[in-house]
């Protein structure tokens, strides 16, 4: 794009550009490493895969954004008109070779990212397929089972306005706190009793909408013991923000112990922050507009807690 004789620009410009690109690559790599710290702890087999992809995209994004910003900054500093300079610049109207370059290179890059992401998606599928969605399948009618586990080994997740209920049909246990055994693959059966909800555990990097009228099978494998937060991720009405539950990942022994002990507990009211907030609001002098009335707290063996400190 320059008319200057090549010899007059070459060496210092090339060295300067190489240094700048080198610095940008280093910055991009560093940002890619930083990206892991912006995410919650990794508590499922999916998490490292998702984080790796995100880190890669952060590095690449830093390079692109940094490159564009550097060009803009350079132009703003170096190519500004002098105060009383009313003249025009050299009228360069375009360059077909450049157009081809900046069409093809981004095309290759984004397709590369997409292929990488598709592979990650497939691996996620094998560690926990996310799409065993079914209405009543013929196999089920004939006694076959969807998903990877028998219904007795699945955990049924009931989403409603506004509480989460977890049922362990095999152990005859129900709870408003989700307990899982570390490193054990688990299959959920997600159902909603009213509107669309979202089953989202950030520490697991996984999310699945819960659709009324469907039972959705959803697999994952927790990998780290701890207490995490499950949040409703699809807006579900007035007390949407309060529709949370705790997820406890524990050793297999502790988990089995918990199931055994819980089975002998009598049924009692589970946790429902929404019901609490609804009752508090009713006591106000002007309780405001009519809302959907929260479902009563589910009757469960173990209410658990959702006020203990959580890891993510």
């Amino acid at each position: 794009m320059t008319n200057a004789p090549p010899s007059s620009v070459k060496l210092p410009a090339v060295v300067g550009l190489a240094l700048a690109v080198g610095a940008l690559i280093a910055l991009s790599w560093w940002m890619g490493q930083q990206a892991y710290h912006w995410l919650p702890v990794q508590a499922s087999t999916a998490a490292p895969l998702v984080d790796g992809l995100f880190s890669f995209e952060t590095a690449l994004g830093t390079f692109v954004f940094g490159g564009v910003s550097a060009v803009m900054l350079w132009v703003i500093v170096m190519h500004r008109a002098d105060k009383y300079d009313e003249s025009d610049a050299v009228p360069i109207e375009g360059n077909t070779k450049l157009e081809v370059i900046w069409t093809v290179i981004p095309l290759v890059i984004v397709m590369g990212i997409a292929v990488y992401a598709m592979r990650v998606g497939e691996t996620l599928g094998s560690v926990g397929p996310m799409e065993h969605i079914h209405l009543a399948q013929p196999a089920e009618d004939q006694g076959g089972y969807p998903g990877d586990r028998l219904p007795a080994e699945q955990i049924e997740v009931v989403a409603r306005q506004w509480s989460w209920e977890f049922r362990y049909p095999g152990a005859k246990v129900s709870s408003t706190e989700l307990h899982l055994a570390v490193d054990q693959p688990v299959t959920f059966r997600l159902v909603s009793e009213d509107v669309i909800h979202g089953f989202y555990i950030p520490a697991f990097r996984l999310k699945q909408d819960v659709i009324p009228g469907r039972a959705i099978n959803f697999n994952l494998t927790p990998t780290r013991e701890g207490r995490y937060r499950l949040r409703d991720s699809q807006f579900s009405g007035t007390w949407f923000a309060a529709n949370q539950a705790d997820v406890v990942v524990e050793s297999l022994d502790t988990y089995q112990q918990w199931l055994k002990q819980s089975a002998s507990q009598p049924l009692q009211a589970g946790i429902s922050d929404a019901v609490q907030q609804y009752e508090d609001r009713k006591k106000l002098k002007s309780p405001g507009w009519a809302t959907v009335v929260p479902a009563p707290p589910p009757q469960v063996n173990v209410p658990g807690s959702n006020t203990l400190p959580h890891d993510a």
């Binding site: 794009m1 320059t2 564009v68 060009v71 803009m72 132009v75 703003i76 190519h79 500004r80 008109a81 300079d85 003249s87 025009d88 610049a89 050299v90 360069i92 375009g94 360059n95 450049l98």
Partner: peptide
């Protein structure tokens, strides 16, 4: 970017 490059901003 090509437009502002070597322009008289």
């Amino acid at each position: 970017l090509g437009t502002i490059w070597r322009g008289k901003l």
